[in-house]
C-alpha cells in the first residue's frame, strides 16, 4: 500500500476512535484502555531497542566473530527463532525463578520480546550486509581499510537502507507480540481489554476500540519506517548521481 493510503487509513482509524469516544457506551472504557496502551508502547519501544542491539551483535558475531562466539550466536538465533514467543515468555517468567533469578514481569516482557525479535533481526542484518555489492568490499580492500573501518564507513551505511523495510515488519511483529505480556500479569492494552470484558461483558465496544488502537499504532510504525526509508534512499540516490 502506498504511503498516502496508509496515512488515510490512520486518519480514518483515529477518526473512528474519536467518533466512538463521543458515545457513552464507548467512552466509558477509553481511559482504562489508554492507560494500557501506554504500557504497550513502553514495552514495544524498549523491546525494539533491545532487538536492534541483539540483531546487530548476533549478525556481526556470526559473520566475523571467533568460533566460540559464532556458535553462541548461532545457538541464540536458532533457539529464539525455533520456539514460540509465548514459550520464551513463560520460560523466563516461570522457570528462571527456579534457578534463583527472579525478574519482574516488565523486565521479562522486554527481554523475551527483544531477544525473540532480535533473533529474526540478526538474519535481516546478515542478509543486508551480504547484499552490498562485491565491488564495494573489493574497493575497501584495495584502499587498505581495516575490517571495522570497512564496515563502519562503507558497508553498514549501505546495508542500513536495505534493512529498513524488513525491520519495519519486525517492529510490527513485536508490537503485536506485546499482547502476549497480558498473560504474565502485566496490565497492557490486551490485559485491560480482557479485564473489562470479564467485568462488563461489553465485548463488541471494548474489542472494537482495542483493535482500532492496535491498528493505529501499527500504522504509525509502518508510516514512520516508510518515511525513514524514503529519506535514507534519497541520500543514496544523490550519492550515486554525483
Amino acid at each position: 500500500m502506498g504511503i498516502r493510503t496508509l496515512v488515510t487509513l490512520l486518519i480514518v482509524a483515529l477518526g473512528v476512535i474519536a467518533a466512538l469516544a463521543t458515545q457513552e457506551a464507548y467512552s466509558l472504557f477509553l481511559p482504562g484502555l489508554l492507560q494500557g496502551a501506554v504500557l504497550t508502547i513502553e514495552i514495544a519501544i524498549l523491546g525494539s531497542l533491545l532487538a536492534i542491539v541483539m540483531g546487530v551483535l548476533a549478525a556481526l558475531a556470526r559473520m566475523y566473530g571467533p568460533a566460540p562466539l559464532r556458535w553462541l550466536a548461532t545457538v541464540y538465533v536458532e533457539i529464539f527463532r525455533g520456539t514460540s514467543a509465548l514459550v520464551q515468555l513463560f520460560w523466563l517468567f516461570f522457570v528462571l525463578p527456579q534457578f534463583g533469578v527472579t525478574l519482574n514481569a516488565f523486565l521479562v516482557a522486554v527481554l523475551a520480546l527483544g531477544l525473540n525479535v532480535g533473533a529474526y533481526g540478526s538474519e535481516v542484518v546478515r542478509g543486508a550486509i551480504q547484499s552490498v555489492a562485491r565491488g564495494q568490499w573489493e574497493a575497501c580492500t584495495a584502499l587498505n581499510m581495516s575490517r571495522p573501518q570497512m564496515l563502519r564507513r562503507i558497508i553498514l551505511p549501505q546495508a542500513f537502507v536495505a534493512m529498513i523495510p524488513p525491520w519495519g515488519n519486525l517492529f510490527i511483529e513485536l508490537l503485536k507480540s506485546t499482547a502476549l505480556v497480558s498473560l504474565i500479569t502485566l496490565s497492557d492494552l490486551a490485559f485491560k481489554a480482557q479485564q473489562m470484558n470479564q467485568n462488563t461483558f461489553k465485548t463488541i465496544p471494548i474489542f472494537t476500540l482495542v483493535l482500532l488502537m492496535y491498528l493505529a499504532m501499527s500504522l504509525v510504525v509502518t508510516i514512520g519506517m516508510r518515511l525513514l526509508e524514503r529519506r535514507a534512499s534519497l541520500g543514496l540516490a544523490r550519492g550515486k548521481a554525483a
Binding site: 499482547a179 490486551a190 481489554a193 470484558n197 491498528l215
Partner: peptide, 15 residues
Amino acid sequence: RSTPLLIQIFFLYFV
C-alpha cells in the same frame, strides 16, 4: 495483519 492474533482470538471467542 496489523492487530495482534491474541486479540482476534479473544474477539472471536467472546463475540
